[in-house]
Design a protein around this nucleic acid. Structure first.
Lengths: 196, 196
DNA sequence: CCCGGGCGAGAACGGTGGTTCTCAGCGGCG
DNA sequence: CGCCGCTGAGAACCACCGTTCTCGCCCGGG
C-alpha cells in the first residue's frame, strides 16, 4: 500500500523473512522432522521452488533459522540484563529473564537443546549450530561475570544452572526452575565465587 | 549350549530383551525417527511380527525401553553413590558418576532430554515418560539431601546442576561440565544449603 | 505317517516427505 | 506487438517407514 506496484523492499528479502518466520515457528512447535517443507510453504506463503532457491535444502533452512534465532535470543537476554546497573544484579537478571521466557505461551524449552536431541546424531551442521550458540551464550555470561569482577569459573557454573533450568522447565512444564536457579546463583555469588 | 534343545528360559522373554537392547542402542545412537523398525529387527534378530506382538507399536517400544533404562540408569547412580559413607560425599559422588558417564564411548547426552526434544511435541506417552524419569531422579537426589540433613530446596538446585551438565556435555562434546557442576555443588554445600 | 497350527522371512500396502519437474501466465524489452 | 525468461502452483518422482499380510516351513499330536 505504501508504494503502488513495485518496491516491496525487495521481494526476495521479504520472502526470506517469511520463510524463516514460518520455519522457526513450525520447527519449534512440532520438531523438525514432523514438519514438511509443504507446511513451511503453506505458512510462509512462499512457493517450494523459491524456498529451495533461497536455502538449498531443509537442513540449510534449519541452520539459517537457528542463526537468526541466535542473534535475537541472545539480544533479548542482553537487553533485559542491561536494564540493571549493578553488575551482580545483572547476573541474577539473567534468571529473571528466564522466568519470563519460561512463562511465555507456547514455550517448549530451548530450541537448540531440542534440535540437538532430534538431529544431533544425524546432522553435523545442526551440531555445529548448537555448539556455536551455547558457546556464544557462555561467552555472554562470561562477560557479565568479568564485569562483576568475579572469577571466570563462576560463569560456567551459572551457565549450567541456566541450561538445567531450561531443560527442567521444558520437561516438567513449569517455569519454577528459573526461580530455583536464581536462588542457587545468588548463593554462589554470596559465597564469593569459586576459588577466590 | 547349557541346555540341549528347549529351555531357553522362555523364548519370548529372551526376544523381548534383545528387542529392548536393540531399540535402546539404536534410538540412543541415531534418534528415534531416524531408526526404522526394520533396523530394530535386524539388530535384535527378532522378526517384525513378533516385535509388534510384543510391543504393539513403535511408540510402545520406545516407552518400554525408556522404562527399563530408567531403572538401570538410576540404579547405576545409586550404586555408585552408595559406595560412599559420608552423606555430603554421597551428594558430590553424583557428579563424580556423571563425569564417568560423560566419558563413556558413545555418550550422546541424556536419553530422556534427547527424546523429549525429538518427540515431546508429538507424543504424550514420551512426555509422560520423560517427566516420570526426571521426577524420579529428583526424588532420588531429594533422599540423599534429606539423609545429609540439608534443606530440601538444595535438592532442586543440585538437580539443575546435573541436568545442565548433561546437556552441556552432550552439546560441547566434553565431560568437563561434570567437574564444573561438582564444584558448584560443593560451593552450595559449603554455603550451608539455601535458607538455613 | 499325516495333519494342523504357530512362526519366521519377506513382500505388500498406504501414507509421507524432500526434492525436482512441468507448464501456463505474465511482465519487460526490443 | 511479439517474444523471452522468470515465477508460481502443483504434480511428479523416488525413497522411506510403520504396520499388516502371505506363504512356506517345521513341530508336536494322533
Amino acid at each position: 500500500m505504501v508504494l503502488p506496484s513495485n518496491a516491496p523492499t525487495s521481494e526476495e528479502a521479504d520472502a526470506r523473512v517469511r520463510a524463516l518466520d514460518a520455519a522457526e515457528g513450525l520447527f519449534y512447535e512440532r520438531g523438525v522432522r514432523a514438519v514438511g517443507m509443504d507446511d513451511v510453504r503453506d505458512r510462509a506463503g512462499v512457493p517450494l521452488k523459491r524456498l529451495y532457491g533461497l536455502f538449498g535444502s531443509k537442513e540449510d533452512l534449519v541452520v539459517a533459522m537457528l542463526r537468526r534465532r541466535d542473534v535475537r535470543w541472545r539480544g533479548r537476554v542482553t537487553a533485559h540484563v542491561r536494564t540493571h546497573a549493578d553488575p551482580d544484579e545483572r547476573l541474577l537478571a539473567v534468571f529473571d529473564w528466564l522466568l519470563e521466557w519460561f512463562g511465555e505461551a507456547g514455550y517448549r524449552g530451548c530450541a537448540w537443546i531440542n534440535i540437538f536431541g532430534e538431529l544431533g546424531a544425524t546432522s553435523d551442521a545442526v551440531v555445529d549450530e548448537a555448539r556455536a550458540h551455547k558457546a556464544a551464550f557462555a561467552r555472554d555470561i562470561g562477560v557479565l561475570v568479568a564485569e562483576a569482577g568475579r572469577p571466570a569459573a563462576l560463569a560456567d557454573q551459572l551457565v549450567l544452572l541456566a541450561e538445567g533450568a531450561m531443560v527442567t522447565s521444558a520437561i516438567t512444564g513449569t517455569p519454577a526452575p528459573a526461580t530455583t536457579a536464581r536462588q542457587a546463583a545468588a548463593a554462589l555469588l554470596a559465597a564469593g565465587g569459586p576459588a577466590p
